[in-house]
């Protein structure tokens, strides 16, 4: 799974991004560059899905893949797929939606794990035990749930079991194994990563990703269908999709919304012009109705986007040159960002 994911990143990046670009994508680095890449190269579903990724493991994998000829490193030593590369299978991880959910999935994991433990222990009559989750917010949350469902805890437990059983039955069987063996409750203690690795003869990366993917799956299914999965839905409550902008970009965005010009914002915020431009592009990426008119006309946006499609690249330099140097890099980035978030009509990718 890890290999597939990395291969997909390489394929989508088209030899235009470094290994660091892949690393930042998977670990969810909050920089304008990474967030723009996520949109531009259609990797936003993988943004921030693997925060515990070890950089050395990624480097090793890239080395191995280039040794085996699976990928090549181009003249700038950016990884690139070859004609013989496998088509990366997205089938094993269709539920990742990192850009939208990666900020709240950890809270869901903490709640679910603790609720399973507390609920199943109660059912089994186990009163004194060490909480599997150390997070005070999750502990408070479970306490509240217990207080609310005082008399219906047995039913809650039964429902939680049935919901998990139902969802896991429709899930990848290996991932279902990982998930259930990681759980603690009813007198059974979950396995460590090391033990899961050994039991299922998988790499540590695949164990972590398999678990994470299952949580994404459960989270989204439960979030969408409260009637079918009432208890799991409870675990998702209050956890909202993120509209990802860095805090600083948020401030700039507010000033733009108040109608200030780029130059005025530069003066007020005492930041470099290029930084403010980064913020504007970032805001355009995540805000579908972002108003680009102070910077570009609608026709110009279409022209730039069409050029990117024709050239099949996201490389600003190529687009800039091919358009005869009429637009500066900021304008091109803004147009592409706006195009991504508003889905301007365009020819399908070849």
């Amino acid at each position: 799974m890890f290999e597939s994911i990395v291969l997909l990143c390489i394929q989508r990046f088209k030899g235009e991004r470094t290994v660091s670009g892949i690393f930042n994508m998977l670990t969810g680095k909050r920089s304008s560059q990474t967030m723009q890449d996520a949109k531009a190269y259609q990797l936003d579903h993988l943004f921030g899905i693997f925060p515990e990724l070890d950089r050395r493991r990624l480097d090793t994998l890239i080395d191995e893949m280039s040794h085996s000829g699976e990928i090549v490193l181009n003249e700038q030593s950016f990884p690139q797929i070859t004609e013989t590369s496998r088509e990366p299978s997205t089938q094993t991880f269709p539920y990742f939606k990192g850009m939208t959910w990666h900020e709240v999935v950890p809270a869901f994991i903490a709640r679910l794990n603790l609720l399973v433990q507390a609920s199943s222990n109660k059912e089994a009559g186990i009163q004194s035990y060490v909480a599997i989750v150390d997070n005070p917010e999750a502990q408070l949350w479970v306490k509240k749930v217990f207080a609310t469902f005082q008399n219906k805890l047995a039913r809650l437990n039964q429902s939680l079991y049935e919901e998990l059983e139902k969802l896991l039955s429709a899930h990848d069987p290996v991932q279902a194994e990982l998930f259930t063996h990681r759980l603690t409750g009813g007198g059974w203690i979950g396995l460590t990563l090391d033990q899961l690795k050994e039991k299922f003869r998988m790499s540590k990366e695949d164990v972590l990703l398999g678990l994470r993917h299952t949580y994404y799956y459960l989270f989204q299914r439960a979030k969408m269908d409260q009637d079918a999965y009432p208890v799991l839905h409870l675990c998702t409550r209050g956890l909202q999709a993120s509209h990802l902008v860095t805090a600083s970009a948020g401030k700039t965005y507010q000033l733009i919304a108040h109608g200030l010009s780029l130059e005025e914002i530069v003066t007020i915020r005492r930041l470099k012009k290029s930084t403010i431009q980064d913020h504007i592009v970032e805001a355009a990426l995540v805000t579908p109705d972002f108003d680009v008119s102070p910077f570009l006309t609608a026709d110009q946006v279409v022209e730039i986007n069409q050029k990117a499609i024709d050239l099949n690249t996201q490389r600003l330099k190529h687009i800039h040159q091919d358009l005869g140097g009429v637009y500066d890099y900021f304008e091109i980035r803004l147009a592409l960002a706006h195009g991504r978030s508003t889905h301007i009509e365009r020819k399908p990718l070849p």
């Binding site: 039964q158 079991y161 194994e177 259930t180 759980l183 409750g185 009813g186 059974w188």
Partner: peptide, 8 residues
């Protein structure tokens, strides 16, 4: 495993 945890 799920049955064991939930005593089912």
């Amino acid at each position: 495993r799920l049955q064991m945890i939930f005593h089912q």
